[in-house]
C-alpha cells in the first residue's frame, strides 16, 4: 500500500448541515502530512470519515482511495481489512480510547492476534516488546494494569503501541500530544518521528498547534470551518502564508513559541 488519497471529502449531518466540505489530500507512504485547524475545524471528522467510523447519523461523500481502491462506502468486510493493517488510528482522548474494564496487555494483544496471528506466549512477548518500543518503562507492570491505573502520558503511549502493533502502512495520529505537558510532548514527537521513519509509514498528523505540527510534517493542510483553505510545503506555508486564516495561525504560533523562527531554513 503506497498511496492514501481523499478527493472532495464532504460530511453531512442527518439534518443536512455540511460539517466538512470538499477536503482533498494525497499522502504517499514515507510522506508526512500535517492537518491543522482550530478546535471544531473538522480535523477529527476528517480522520473518522477516512476510516469509515463517523458517528451514527453522519454521512460522508466524495472519494477516499487506498492505492486507487475506493474505501469510502466500501462494505464493512473490506474496511475491516483496511483498518489496522492499511490505516491505523491513534485517537484524540487517550483515556476514553482504552476499554476501562480490560487490562492494558489484553488490549494490546488484540491487534497482535488479529493482524499478526500471535497467540499465547508469543503474543505475550510481543505485547511487552510493543510497550517497550513506545518507551514505556516497566512494560510488565503496565501490561497488567487497568487503564485508570496508569498516567495520561502512559495511556497515550499504549494507544500508540496498539496502533503500531498492526504494522500499518499509514498511521493517523489525532492530536496525540495535546493532553500532554511540554517535555512529555517533545518526547512523544521524537518517538513518533523515529518510529515512522524506521517503518517507512505514511503519517497523517492532526493538531491545532502549528509549531507542533510543523515540527513533524513535511507538508501541511489548513482546515477552517470544515474547508481546506491552504496546502503546501511546511517551509513555504510558514514563510508565506497565503490565506488570512493561516497568517493568523502563523502569528499565533510565533507569539507562543519563539522557536518557530529557528525552524525556518
Amino acid at each position: 500500500m503506497r498511496l492514501l488519497e481523499a478527493e472532495n471529502l464532504t460530511v453531512r449531518t442527518a439534518d443536512g448541515r455540511e460539517l466538512l466540505q470538499d477536503v482533498s489530500f494525497r499522502l504517499a507512504r514515507g510522506d508526512r502530512l500535517g492537518l491543522i485547524g482550530e478546535s471544531g475545524a473538522g480535523k477529527s471528522l476528517t480522520v473518522l470519515a477516512v476510516v469509515g467510523l463517523l458517528p451514527a447519523g453522519m454521512a460522508a461523500s466524495g472519494r477516499v482511495l487506498l492505492d486507487g481502491e475506493p474505501i469510502l462506502g466500501a462494505p464493512e468486510r473490506v474496511l475491516n481489512t483496511v483498518r489496522g493493517r492499511g490505516i491505523a488510528v491513534v485517537f484524540q482522548d487517550p483515556l476514553a480510547a482504552l476499554d476501562p474494564l480490560m487490562r492494558v496487555g489484553a488490549q494490546v494483544a488484540e491487534p497482535l492476534r488479529r493482524h499478526r496471528g500471535l497467540r499465547g506466549a508469543a503474543a505475550r512477548r510481543a505485547v511487552l516488546e510493543a510497550l517497550a518500543e513506545v518507551r514505556l518503562s516497566d512494560p510488565d507492570r503496565i501490561a497488567r494494569s487497568y487503564p485508570h491505573e496508569i498516567s495520561g502520558g502512559q495511556r497515550q503511549r499504549v494507544a500508540m503501541a496498539m496502533a503500531l502493533a498492526c504494522e500499518p502502512a499509514f498511521l493517523i495520529a489525532d492530536e496525540p500530544t495535546a493532553a500532554l505537558d511540554g517535555t512529555v510532548q517533545a518526547e512523544m514527537l521524537a518517538l513518533l518521528d523515529r518510529l515512522v521513519t524506521a517503518r517507512g509509514m505514511g503519517l497523517l498528523f492532526v493538531g491545532h498547534d502549528l509549531a507542533v505540527v510543523a515540527r513533524i510534517s513535511h507538508r501541511i493542510l489548513v482546515l477552517e470551518g470544515g474547508r481546506a483553505v491552504e496546502e503546501g510545503e511546511v517551509g513555504d506555508v510558514l514563510r508565506a502564508p497565503s490565506h488570512p486564516h493561516t497568517r493568523d495561525l502563523v502569528s499565533a504560533a510565533r507569539r507562543l513559541h519563539g522557536a518557530l523562527e529557528r525552524m525556518l531554513p
Binding site: G84, V89, A96, A97, D99, E110, R114
Partner: peptide
C-alpha cells in the same frame, strides 16, 4: 458502549463490529 471511544478504537484497528 456503541458510542464509546474504546469500541471505536477497536474497530479502527480492524476488529469487525
Amino acid at each position: 458502549v456503541l458510542d464509546s471511544d474504546y469500541l471505536r478504537t477497536a474497530r479502527a484497528l480492524g476488529a469487525p463490529l
